[in-house]
């Protein structure tokens, strides 16, 4: 079976700084890949290049059999890649439901005729979407699913994380990119969130995940394979237990000589 995502010699430069340095990376369908490395090692940059926010300076990205290197963020989303952000990027003045619907953009009708004139059909679609969103949110936190018409700015951090993950999941992407979901959460909360994500993954079946995470216990528990970055280069890859023993990795993390 071919990999869902494969990057060849992917490079991104900012002026003189090489944030991603000829990165080769493959992710198999249905697996969870952990992406780890010290701060500034290029993990988030990888997500930004992959999703088209920054254009690649060199190399290629293949996804599901097609070359997607030069796609705009909108196109990347449409072929089935969705993400969360390191710093929460919810629209805080909007309701939770509205936020989820931003994530489901590609399944909604946006023409003027439908939205302004065919109000009945619109209301029906809203009803369907509302039920689906509640279903999804319920997997993460049943009480939260009953509060979908509250502003996202009024819920605690952990719930915001959940909403953000749901916003990425609701469009049924093939590949989910999670950028440090543990930021701002306790260890237990993070583990719970991960378990819930895995639950969804089993339900959807074909979901593939790349996870950037600093909490090694999370990585150990849910990833099948890890890639370690340092200064934009891949310095190790394999199962967590294996890379954790790698001398280079230890050096990168602890600065050991």
């Amino acid at each position: 079976m071919t990999a869902l995502l494969s990057c060849r010699a992917l490079t991104r430069r900012f002026g003189g700084l090489v944030a991603l340095d000829r990165l080769d990376l493959e992710v198999e369908r249905g697996t969870v890949l952990g992406l780890i490395g010290p701060n500034g090692s290029g993990k988030t940059t990888f997500f930004n290049v992959l999703t088209g926010i920054f254009p690649a300076s060199g190399g290629e990205i293949g996804f599901d059999g097609a070359a997607i290197t030069d796609l705009a963020p909108q196109q990347v989303y449409r072929i089935g890649i969705a993400r969360t952000f390191q710093r929460s990027r919810l629209c805080l003045p909007l309701s939770i439901f509205d936020n989820l619907m931003v994530g489901n953009h590609r399944h909604l009708r946006h023409d003027l005729w439908f939205n302004l004139v065919r109000r009945k059909a619109l209301r029906r679609q809203i009803g369907e979407q509302f039920a689906a969103a509640r279903e999804l949110l319920r997997i993460f936190d049943p009480p939260l699913a009953e509060r979908m018409l509250e502003p996202a700015g009024r819920i605690p951090m952990i719930d915001r994380r959940r909403v953000e993950v749901c916003r990425a999941l609701i469009s049924r992407p093939k590949l989910l990119l999670l950028d440090e979901p543990s930021a701002g959460m306790t260890h237990d909360e993070t583990l719970r969130l991960m378990d819930d994500i895995l639950k969804v993954q089993q339900q959807i079946g074909s979901l593939t995940i790349i996870l950037i995470e600093h909490e090694m216990s999370v990585i150990e528990r849910i990833t099948s394979r890890c890639v370690v970055l340092n200064y934009g280069k891949k310095i190790a890859e394999g199962a967590y237990a294996q890379v954790a023993q790698d001398a280079q990795v230890k050096q990168a993390y602890l600065g050991l000589e």
């Binding site: 952000f85 990027r89 629209c91 909007l94 931003v102 916003r167």
Partner: peptide, 15 residues
């Protein structure tokens, strides 16, 4: 609203 509040997030979800 999404475009107004956060262009990067909006673009990442296909808007």
């Amino acid at each position: 609203d999404a475009v107004r509040l956060d262009e990067i997030a909006a673009a990442s979800f296909g808007l």
